[in-house]
Lab assay of single mutants.
Amino acid sequence: DHWEIRVGDITIHLKDVDEEIIRWVEEALRNGDDLEEIKRWVEEVLR
């Protein structure tokens, strides 16, 4: 699977990601969370 999350001008590409993570990231972006923080979290989860 390949996911693209778009929020404003930001697009995040994710592969082999659980839908729950996608929802979490979308929510975090909508809440204005720091992008670097989100990326770190996702990388942590995917490890």
Rank of each mutant, 00 (worst) to 15 (best):
I21M: 09
R23F: 07
R40N: 09
W24I: 08
G32A: 08
V17T: 09
D16T: 11
L46D: 01
R30T: 07
A28K: 14
E37H: 08
R40L: 08
I10M: 09
W3C: 04
K39V: 13
N31Q: 09
E44T: 03
A28D: 00
L14D: 01
E4H: 05
E43C: 12
L35F: 13
E36K: 05
L14C: 05
E26T: 15
D34E: 08
L35M: 11
E36L: 06
D9R: 03
I22S: 03
R23W: 06
V17L: 13
W24D: 02
T11Q: 06
E44I: 03
E36S: 06
I12H: 03
L29H: 01
L46T: 02
E43R: 02
V42Y: 06
A28P: 00
L46K: 01
T11I: 12
G8H: 08
D34P: 08
I22W: 11
R6M: 13
I38A: 01
E26Q: 11
R40S: 11
L14F: 13
V25G: 00
D18R: 10
I10S: 06
L46Q: 03
D9W: 08
L14V: 12
D1S: 13
L29F: 07
I5G: 01
E20T: 10
L14M: 09
V45I: 13
V17M: 12
D18M: 14
W41T: 03
W3I: 05
G32T: 10
D34H: 13
E27D: 12
D1R: 03
V17P: 06
V17C: 05
I22F: 13
E19A: 11
H13L: 14
G32C: 15
I22P: 02
I38K: 00
D18F: 15
V42F: 06
I38L: 07
R23I: 06
E37R: 08
K39N: 07
V17I: 10
I22Y: 11
K39H: 11
L29M: 09
R30I: 08
I10H: 10
I22N: 01
D1F: 13
R40Q: 09
L29S: 01
R30F: 09
E36G: 07
T11S: 09
E37Q: 11
K15D: 09
H13E: 12
K15E: 06
E20N: 11
E37F: 06
W3V: 08
G32P: 14
I5D: 03
D16F: 09
L14G: 05
E37Y: 14
H2P: 11
D33S: 10
R47C: 11
D16L: 06
R47T: 15
D1Q: 11
E43N: 04
I22V: 11
D18N: 14
R47M: 15
V42Q: 00
W3E: 05
W3Q: 04
I38Q: 00
I22C: 02
L29V: 08
D18W: 15
L29K: 01
K39W: 11
L35W: 13
G8E: 06
G8W: 05
L46P: 00
D9F: 09
D1G: 11
G8R: 01
V45E: 14
D34M: 15
L46V: 05
G8T: 04
R23N: 07
H13Y: 13
R47I: 15
I12W: 11
V42H: 00
H13G: 09
E43P: 00
E43T: 02
V25F: 06
E4Y: 08
L35G: 03
R23M: 08
I10V: 08
I10Q: 10
I22R: 12
E19K: 13
V42P: 00
W3F: 09
H13N: 10
R23G: 03
E4N: 05
E43W: 08
K39F: 14
R6G: 06
R6W: 12
E26A: 10
K39S: 06
I21T: 08
E36Q: 08
E4Q: 07
W24A: 10
D33N: 14
G32D: 07
D16R: 04
E19F: 12
E4P: 06
H13V: 14
D1W: 13
W41D: 00
E4C: 12
E20G: 07
W41N: 02
E37K: 12
R30C: 02
R47F: 09
K39Q: 11
W3K: 03
W3M: 04
D16A: 09
R47E: 14
W24C: 03
E36M: 07
E20K: 06
E4G: 02
L14R: 03
G8I: 06
E4D: 07
E36A: 08
L35I: 13
R30S: 04
L35A: 07
I10P: 00
I5A: 00
E37A: 14
I12K: 02
V17H: 07
W24Y: 13
V7I: 11
I22E: 02
E4T: 02
I38R: 00
I12S: 02
H2L: 11
H2E: 09
G8C: 00
V17A: 09
I5Y: 03
W41P: 00
E36F: 04
L46C: 05
R47P: 06
E36W: 04
R40W: 04
W3H: 07
D16E: 08
W3N: 05
H2C: 10
N31P: 08
V25L: 09
D16I: 05
W41E: 02
W3P: 01
I5T: 01
I12N: 02
I12G: 03
R30W: 08
I38H: 00
E26L: 14
E43Q: 08
E4F: 11
L35N: 04
L46R: 01
E20H: 09
D18C: 03
A28F: 05
I38C: 01
D34F: 12
L29A: 01
E44V: 03
I22K: 10
E44M: 03
D18Q: 09
V7D: 05
V45S: 06
L14T: 02
D34Q: 09
I22G: 04
K39D: 02
K15Y: 07
I21A: 02
G32E: 05
G8A: 08
N31R: 15
E44N: 03
L14N: 01
L29N: 01
R6L: 09
V7F: 13
V17Y: 13
L35V: 11
E27K: 14
R47N: 15
W24R: 13
D1C: 15
G32M: 11
G32S: 09
E20P: 06
G8Q: 05
I38E: 00
V45H: 14
G8D: 07
K15H: 13
G32F: 12
D18G: 13
I21Y: 03
R47D: 12
I12M: 08
H2Y: 15
V25R: 00
H2Q: 10
R40D: 04
D16S: 07
V45D: 01
E37W: 13
